[in-house]
Design a protein around this nucleic acid. Structure first.
Lengths: 205, 205, 205, 205
DNA sequence: AATGAATGAGATTTCATTCAT
DNA sequence: CATGAATGAAATCTCATTCAT
């Protein structure tokens, strides 16, 4: 079947979109070039006109995701300036919500990043670290800024705080967001904020 | 070359031990039965005498890990009784330390559980969930007991607290424990306890 | 080495033809996909492009044979109408000759049907029965028609007669046709007709 | 499991008996030494104490069958002398019945001889031919004797007659005896005798 | 005589990639 | 740009046979 003429970019994007679904569903190894070209309704050769191989399109998928992330972070950062001591706790909550919503919206790519891009290939690892590093740096910057402004305690390093937050994020995403169609984000966010803000200590102690 | 005879169990255990290393290093898919038998210095057929295939030995690896976990949890639970309101914070810290040490000691198997047992096969998923479920239930039980004893706050559910703690554990293990030979567990544990106990709120606010 | 492109059907037919020779020579079990691709001068993957496996091509071989048989029976049936009481004995003789010639021409496939398609796989058995059933039904129909027309005796059932004739056919083919390049069909046919027509009874008794 | 001490011959016979069942059920190739030793409740090594391999025990099975056949033929031949012109037709019928009964009684070994001993190995072929050759020679001798005594017609060679009879025997056994637990031997025998004695010719013509 | 763990050649099958049309 | 038949390296799994105990 010959498809209508498309721009190179459109065809490339189409293949990446199919690949995201395929990789998310089957994982990198089990996914086959066959699945991708079948999903895209394209001949084998066409695939190799746009990507040098399976690795290549997987890297392209990660790259794609990283760019979405980058864009999201940039947009978000614009209104970080309005953070004050008073609304600080709400800020933390809102940011968590924003992240969970973003990750839920990109659930397939997120699943790939979380589960499929480690331990297969050095390049994959690097791309994965680029994306996660960006998130991590963003979180770290946020905590550092808060510390400097005296909004939060200063005796735990921002790096470590972001480490903990990333972990919580991953686990919540993996167990509460990815497997469910309509996760109860509201309740999660509220409990998250409570925990992050005051820890587990008994009130008044 | 024919190797000497071993007991059935010894040979099986030997193969599992090699498999743990191989799966941790290469991941399930890239690992081949070849790698395992080469590592064990055993003929192809010998492998199939003990396991019905690659899947089977992978499941055996997960099973093996789950049993170690189970044992560890049991041993640990014995002295949980001594927990009091006063030493409660120390308890949290000590438990984190115990877990990190356990996971560091089983770093290879832990890596497999974290990165290699999802999205490949339904059975793997189930075995993985068995092991993680055990950890999770253990953590949940702990928080519930603390809540009932009034040691910690009551307005965040034990399930959610254990969820957050699992996430933190995973992230710390994945980024700080697994990649380093001698991780600075002490500092991590201290900061963890601080964060978990009091949250991020500025002291005195 | 990459061979030139052929039509799908041509390549498929080529592989089937090679497979007939291979299966006839070695039998289903001893024959390997290797033998077939080596005989066809084709790469391993090419084989699996056309057949899902060894079983599949074997079934295709049986199917192929059945179609040849079907065609032969149809062609033959066209001039069955000219059978009369007078030329009836000649008819029997001529039909035997036709069968022996057909089976001799397809000696390899015939050998497969006789010796290699039983007791290995249920599907094989079924395909074999389809082909033999067609022969058997053809023979039975013939005898029934002859009985109704009063050309032959009526006290032995057409089914049983065709059973005997099939047996004789098989044995003659297996011992006289298949092993020899130029079997003395003439003499066989003559003795066959004599036996079938008059039995073993002494003339005049 | 160590079995009680048995004589060499008893153990050998036991293995052969199991092997007959196994080969009949699965065919030579699909049958495994495993099946045989499992069926006999004997260790792997024990098998190789009695037979040099799978081929060897298969040959032993054929040999065993040939000996049974030989014995049967000898016993039968004793009272061949009483054949006369008058009871000749009955003789033919009785012999067919005897054969069918013998083959039905040894249905497993018969199945092996009919379906499993051709095209696998030269030795098997030879053993098969020995057994079938014995049957064939027996039938040929019978027809020759009848011809000499003027009991049956002389213009069809005894060799060819026995060929036809063997074919009929095989087909009847394969389709009517082997697949059914209680075949209607009586009716078959009667129709057989009718056909063999008088052919298909219309009575009175 | 008996045992059964160990062996390894050999068979089947998959799938990423190439290239002539 | 697009096609899809062809390739072949590499992986999994089987099972007849051996041999130390």
């Amino acid at each position: 079947m010959k498809l209508g003429v498309q721009g190179r970019e459109a065809r490339r994007k189409q293949l990446i979109d199919v690949a995201i679904k395929v990789f998310a569903k089957k994982g990198y190894n089990a996914a086959s070039v066959n699945d991708i070209i079948a999903g895209a309704g394209v001949a084998r050769g066409t695939f190799y006109l746009h990507f040098s191989g399976k690795k290549d399109i997987f890297v392209a998928v990660l790259e794609d995701y990283r760019m979405e992330l980058e864009f999201m972070v940039k947009v978000y950062m614009k209104h970080t300036g309005k953070m004050t001591v008073e609304n600080c706790r709400e800020w933390l909550r809102e940011e968590v919500r924003t992240w969970l919503e973003f990750l839920a919206e990109h659930r397939e790519a997120t699943k790939i990043l979380l589960h499929e891009s480690g331990g297969i290939d050095g390049v994959f690892e690097r791309k994965r670290n680029e994306a996660r590093g960006m998130m991590r740096r963003h979180l770290t910057r946020k905590f550092r800024r808060m510390q400097k402004a005296g909004m939060i305690r200063g005796d735990v390093s921002p790096e470590t705080l972001s480490l903990f937050e990333m972990g919580m994020l991953d686990e919540v995403v993996a167990t509460q967001i990815l497997p469910h169609k309509n996760p109860d984000v509201e309740r999660l966010v509220e409990q998250w904020a409570e925990f992050e803000w005051r820890g587990v200590r008994r009130v008044g102690s």
